[in-house]
Amino acid sequence: MQVPIEYYLILSAALFVIGIAGVLIRRNAIVVFMCIELMLNSANLTLITFSSYLGNSIGQIFVFFVMAVAAAEAAVGLAIIITLFRNMQTVSIDKFNIFRW
């Protein structure tokens, strides 16, 4: 018995929703960042599911680009978090209000 495509899509949706809940609940900037990585990965799972079920490799090439962008985003984001921690001695996103005027 083959796995129906809906199962993969529901799994991906569930991972995405867990990521949303994490972004809303958590107050640690690094963990919020990790939840964003989780959401990116659930989108990757959807792309690869369709790529596999349609027999078309373009979805997997798109996932490759998403991975590269995620790596760049993680590098810049964590550098920003380190700089904020150096200036404010905290990584709580409730304390980051320096852009407010």
Binding site: I48, S51, M67
Partner: peptide, 28 residues
């Protein structure tokens, strides 16, 4: 990803995400 016959992306997932990015996160 391996179940979905995406060999290249499965290996890239382990190397890039589980390897590089998460080591970076743990380091920070």
């Amino acid at each position: 990803y391996l179940l979905l016959n995406a060999q290249f992306i499965a290996i890239a997932q382990v190397i890039v995400y589980a390897g590089a990015i998460m080591v970076f996160f743990l380091f920070v």
